[in-house]
């Protein structure tokens, strides 16, 4: 996904004079050649994430469409107040593109992880959040985001599904059943499909949890049982689902990354297991919960 981002952003800078890229030393080498050609629109501010967002805000104030990029923990967690005040509060937007989703950086430890980024962005009004599950979904999402001025968070991961879905802005059913609706966000689709094999459930996929497709949710959740499987903090979208189904009796199971600092390294697969997000653990949670 990171390469898809680099390729698409390079093309956008080349073809659309409105776009500008702001970096804070991360991925600078990948844009080195393009920066020689477009030094005014590919900007590396050094290891200064507050400034990266401030600069993006300033660029947007002059009518450009800024893209700011770094590891999620530096881009979002560290610069949260800049994101809150230097963009949408000014009446402007930007495209924030992160890598290092949740525990992608598990071997680097908790300092390089951000399972809370989407929840942080979700505290702010007006943001669209894209969580692609496949590299093939990145280019269309980024290109579409570059064509307007609203705030967009594009969260890239090294965890991927087998198939790219072009039409997953809304909840896209990929398996049909009767007992429950299981919503898989982004790269959770692959483990969810494995975990639900043979279960009588509908599995629906989306790469865009904000705005959440509440219309599709209501249409697909006729059983009243909804399981929400997200690749970031568990329960991040629970409030949206609960509000959307407030007029109906329903049961909601929210799974995602737990609120634990594991103080451990290892691979993303290890961390998926620790947080109960590997196929075996997901299946156990679902079968215990299903009516």
């Amino acid at each position: 996904m990171r390469q898809a981002f680099i390729d698409t952003a390079t093309t956008l800078i080349e073809e659309d004079p409105r776009t500008a890229l702001v970096l804070a030393d991360i991925s600078v080498a990948a844009f080195e050649e393009a920066a020689l050609k477009h030094p005014d629109r590919i900007l590396n501010v050094g290891i200064r994430e507050q400034l990266m967002i401030g600069v993006a805000g300033g660029l947007a104030l002059t009518g450009l469409r800024p893209i700011a990029h770094s590891y999620a923990t530096f881009l979002v967690d560290r610069a949260y107040e800049q994101i809150k005040l230097d963009l949408a509060h000014q009446g402007t937007g930007a495209i924030l593109v992160s890598v290092g989703a949740s525990y992608d950086g598990s071997s680097a430890g908790y300092t390089h992880m951000s399972p809370m980024d989407v929840q942080l962005i979700d505290t702010l009004p007006g943001w669209t959040v894209h969580v692609p599950g496949h590299p093939g979904e990145v280019a269309p999402l980024l290109t579409a985001a570059a064509a307007h001025d609203d705030p967009v968070y594009l969260r890239l991961s090294t965890q991927t599904n087998d198939i790219a879905y072009a039409d997953a802005h809304l909840l896209r059913p990929v398996r049909h059943g009767t007992k429950a609706l299981v919503v898989a966000v982004g790269p959770m689709l692959a483990p969810v499909l494995e975990a639900t094999r043979g279960l009588d459930v509908t599995v629906a996929y989306t790469h865009t949890p904000r705005p959440f497709d509440t219309t599709g949710l209501r249409a697909l959740a006729h059983s009243g049982n909804v399981a929400l499987i997200e690749p970031y903090l568990a329960g991040t979208s629970a409030h949206v689902v609960s509000s959307a189904l407030a007029d109906r009796p329903h049961r909601l199971l929210s799974l995602g990354v737990t609120r634990r600092d594991l103080h451990s390294y290892g691979t993303p697969t290890d961390h998926a297991r620790h947080h109960g997000l590997d196929p075996a653990a997901l299946r156990a949670s679902l079968t215990t919960w299903l009516p």
């Binding site: 400034l51 401030g54 300033g58 660029l59 104030l61 002059t62 009518g63 450009l64 230097d86």
Partner: peptide, 9 residues
């Protein structure tokens, strides 16, 4: 920071 970005823009 916003001023620097404005000047760059």
């Amino acid at each position: 920071g916003l001023g620097v970005g404005t000047a760059l823009g």
